[in-house]
C-alpha cells in the first residue's frame, strides 16, 4: 500500500538555513546539508528546500547547497523558490534535485510547466500554489504571497494538472505560521478537483493537524516546518502517531 509522506521543509537564504532545527547539537546550525541529513536519517520521506534568497547576486548559492545535499541524502529532494524558467529547473536538476517546485513563474506563464514537464518528465515538476481565501473562493498569490493574481485556486490547480504538473504543493496563506492546522476545506476541494497527488502545507501546529490533512483533506503528503524545527516533534514521532491513527506511513 502506498504510504502517506511526511516532508520537512527548510528555508534557505544565501545558502544558509534561516529557520532550522535548533534542538539538536549541531556543529553548524546554519548548514542546510547537515540539517537535511538529520532529517533523512530521522525517517523523512522527502526533503524540501525553499530558497528565500532575495538578491539576484546570491541566487547561485542554492545550487551548491543542492549539489552537496544530494551527495549525502538518498531520499527525494524538492527545491523551490525563485525558479523562473526551464533553464533554472534544468540547473537545479543537474545539481541533484529530484523535483523542482514552481510558483510565480507557473502563474505568469503556464508554458513553463508545459515545457519543463515535457522536457524532464512530470515526475519532477511540482507546482506550488499559495492560496488565500477571499469571500467564498481562494485566490492564487505570487511573489511569496505579496501579489494577488486574481486567479481562482481550484481552476488554477486543474490547469496546472493539465499543463503537466506531477504534484501540487498547496499552501494556505491564511494558515501559514498560525499553527492552527491546515485549511482542510481548501485541501479537500483541490484534491477532489485533480487526479495528481496533493501536498498540504501551511498551519501545522500539532500531529492531529497532520492526521486531518491526510484523512479529511485527502492530502497524499504533509509538509511541515516549524513543528520539526523547534523540536516540538521529531519526524519519527509524527510517523508513529499517524500510524496509530490508521494512516499508512513508512516506518
Amino acid at each position: 500500500m502506498l504510504k502517506n509522506r511526511i516532508i520537512p521543509c527548510l528555508d534557505v537564504k544565501n545558502g544558509r538555513v534561516v529557520k532550522g532545527i535548533n534542538f539538536v547539537d549541531l556543529q553548524d546550525a546554519g548548514d542546510p546539508v547537515e540539517q537535511a541529513k538529520i532529517y533523512s536519517d530521522g525517517g523523512a520521506d522527502e526533503i524540501c528546500f525553499l530558497d528565500i534568497t532575495a538578491s539576484n547576486e546570491n541566487r547561485d548559492t542554492i545550487y551548491e547547497v543542492v549539489k552537496e545535499t544530494s551527495k549525502k541524502c538518498f531520499v527525494p529532494l524538492t527545491v523551490g523558490g525563485g525558479v523562473r524558467n526551464v533553464e533554472d529547473i534544468n540547473k537545479l536538476l543537474n545539481c541533484g534535485a529530484d523535483k523542482v517546485s514552481i510558483n510565480t513563474a507557473a502563474v505568469q506563464d503556464a508554458n513553463v510547466v508545459v515545457e519543463s514537464s515535457k522536457k524532464f518528465g512530470s515526475q519532477c515538476i511540482v507546482v506550488a500554489i499559495d492560496a488565500k481565501k477571499n469571500g467564498d473562493k481562494w485566490d492564487v498569490y505570487t511573489h511569496g504571497g505579496r501579489n494577488n493574481s486574481g486567479l481562482d485556486a481550484l481552476e488554477f490547480a486543474k490547469k496546472m494538472e493539465d499543463s503537466g504538473a506531477g504534484e501540487l504543493l498547496v499552501t494556505s496563506m491564511d494558515r501559514d505560521g498560525t499553527q492552527i492546522g491546515y485549511d482542510i476545506e481548501l485541501m479537500k476541494k483541490i484534491s477532489k478537483k485533480v487526479n495528481i497527488p496533493l501536498i498540504a502545507s501551511g498551519g501545522v501546529g500539532n500531529l492531529d493537524h497532520m492526521v486531518e490533512g491526510i484523512k479529511e483533506g485527502n492530502a497524499s503528503a504533509v509538509l511541515a516546518a516549524s513543528i520539526f524545527h523547534y523540536g516540538t516533534h521529531s519526524v519519527i514521532e509524527a510517523k508513529e502517531y499517524l500510524n496509530s491513527k490508521g494512516i499508512p506511513v513508512r516506518i
Binding site: L2, K3, R5, A221
Partner: peptide, 14 residues
C-alpha cells in the same frame, strides 16, 4: 487508476 480512484503518478514509498 480505476476511474480516478487512485492518483497518478504513483508517487511515494510503497
Amino acid at each position: 487508476n480505476q476511474n480516478g480512484k487512485y492518483k497518478l503518478p504513483h508517487i511515494g514509498w510503497n
